[in-house]
Design a binder for these strands. Structure first.
Length: 479
RNA sequence: GGUCCCGUCGUCUAACGGUUAGGACACCAGGUUUUCAUCCUGGCAACAGGGGUUCGAUUCCCCUCGGGAUCACCA
């Protein structure tokens, strides 16, 4: 039975783009929402004005959309708990902060940043963990907004359950008086997200493991506020391919939009991101989006970090491409054809696509893979010279073979079947190995290092083009 | 350093006390009348180490080692 009224959220700060590691929690949250017929909410946490990157909020939304992770409520479309931009929810944070002050659970921080820093250093010198609460001021001054507002914590041990990590526990030493509202008037993440998740009725908070150490503090704040915490799920980080560190932009982690631009399918990207740390317990690797929605579960998510392997992504994308009906694939590759293809009919391009579908790893390869179908490429004799078998033949021998091929092909009606038959006859007639004869014809007619099966390629190229290119090859060999 | 979490092939992972430790990616070899790819077949390759508990441990407990996260007026 699906849970009722599930509401999950993705709450990034608009400080940059989204890479594969960063978007994973969004995928998880989206999946949980869809699976339970719930709502997926997007909220932008823009409380750090210094770090904010112009346009990144939009960029993040574009990335989510590109992967098909549509949200039900968000800064652009609104919703029952508008606004979805933290910088516009200041009144709300103030109101809750006042409740805390009134209850004696929040106080103005009288120290300067430098003073706090010196406390910290002193603790370090004594090899003691630094806790601000050891420096709580004796008398409380009224908070006028120019000082940071701190939470007056009530330290105690905690045990709690995390939907991914399982049962967790910590001692009272991790609880401290963290800052609720900064001296610039903006709330900290630690405070704002609690309020927002409460007001937006979030049921599942799914986030990266950098927050796990702060959870006890959040729990403590919930108690002070007399509210109950949502279900929490902490996903491990995605690691760089070789490094052991969390995947970061610095390690060359690419913007997910880059993958979309290169022609990776959103479904494949989602499949890959989810499978980085999750499986359904069977041997299935490739899942459709619908299967993922149906089968995903937080408790089967791996507790340890997974390395991001682009080769596996490429394979998975290829698998998704092959699984697509040709007509559907054709619609998706529209922007990836070589320039020379413009003006050719849909019918023709679909046939070309059909020949390369099984060797396409991502759409950006389409252009190179198919260019020779649309234009005569200059004759490149190196393709012959570098060929293992052809390279051994003398020009005279190549000439003879090509002439014979030309004669044979001139008689063909260029259907795949007829071409296959005549090519086989030619094989006997010349008593050549296919490795030699077919390679030569293939190179002569495509001028490409790789191409689909010969008979099919020739049939699609057509009689005129095929013979013309054979002729061009002969000319080059002669000169 | 304190606190918390994690540890199966190079990589992603299966296993929830009894298996020749399975699958996938990658790689290698062979096959499918040429190349690349697909597909098929085969191969290489892992329980971090040490103690317990148990008739029996990859699985449960402890220690060591290794890795990660976090200790901000960032999120």
């Amino acid at each position: 039975m699906p849970e009722k009224d599930v509401r999950t959220r993705f709450a990034p700060s608009p400080t940059g783009f989204l890479h594969v590691g960063g978007i994973r929690t969004a995928v998880f949250a989206w999946l949980v929402a869809r699976q339970n017929k719930g709502k997926f909410i997007l909220r932008l946490e823009d409380t750090d004005k210094k770090r904010e990157v112009e346009g990144s909020g939009q960029h993040i939304m574009d990335s989510l959309k590109a992967l098909g992770l549509e949200w039900n409520e968000g800064p652009d479309i609104g919703g029952p708990h508008t606004p979805y931009l933290q910088s516009e929810r200041l009144e709300s944070y103030k109101a809750w902060a006042q409740k805390l002050i009134d209850a004696g659970r929040a106080y103005a921080d009288p120290y300067t940043a430098e003073e706090v820093q010196s406390f910290r250093e002193e603790a370090q010198r004594n090899k003691q963990p630094f806790l601000y609460r050891n420096h709580r001021p004796d008398k409380t001054l009224t908070w006028d907004g120019s000082q940071p507002l701190r939470f007056k914590s009530a330290p105690k041990p905690y045990k709690w359950h995390d939907a991914i990590m399982g049962d967790l526990s910590t001692g009272p030493e991790v609880i401290d008086d963290f800052i609720l509202i900064k001296s610039d008037g903006y709330p900290t993440y630690n405070f704002a997200h609690i309020i927002d998740d409460l007001e937006m009725e979030i049921t599942h908070v799914i986030r990266g493991q950098e927050f796990i150490a702060s959870v006890p503090n959040y729990l403590n704040l919930h108690e002070a506020l007399d509210i109950s915490p949502p279900i929490m799920a902490t996903a491990p980080h995605v690691l760089g391919p070789d490094g052991k560190k969390k995947l970061s932009k610095r390690d060359g982690a690419k913007d997910v939009l880059d993958y979309v631009r290169d022609g990776f399918l959103p479904d494949a990207l989602v499949n890959f991101i989810v499978s980085l740390g999750w499986n359904d317990g069977t041997e299935q690797e490739v899942f459709t989006r619908e299967e993922l929605i149906q089968k995903f579960s937080l408790d089967r998510v791996q507790k340890s970090g997974a390395h991001f392997d682009e080769r596996r992504l490429a394979w998975m994308n290829g698998a998704h491409i092959r699984a697509l009906p040709l007509e559907e694939l054709y619609k998706k590759v529209s922007g990836f054809w070589p320039e020379e293809a413009s003006g050719h009919s849909d019918e023709h391009k679909i046939q070309v696509l059909g020949l390369v579908q099984e060797r396409l790893k991502y759409f950006a390869e389409l252009s190179e893979l198919t260019r020779f179908f649309f234009i005569d490429l200059p004759v490149d004799l190196l393709l012959v010279r570098d060929n293992k078998q052809l390279g051994k033949l003398e020009t005279r021998e190549l000439n003879i073979l090509l002439e014979q091929a030309k004669v044979t092909l001139e008689q063909s009606n260029f259907t795949v079947q007829d071409l296959t038959d005549r090519l086989n006859q030619l094989l006997e007639q010349t008593s050549q190995k296919p490795g030699i004869l077919f390679s030569l014809i293939r190179i002569a007619t495509t001028q490409a290092p790789a191409s689909p099966a010969l008979a099919e390629t020739l049939a699609l190229l057509g009689k005129e083009t095929s013979l013309r290119r054979l002729g061009q090859m002969l000319e080059s060999l002669a000169s």
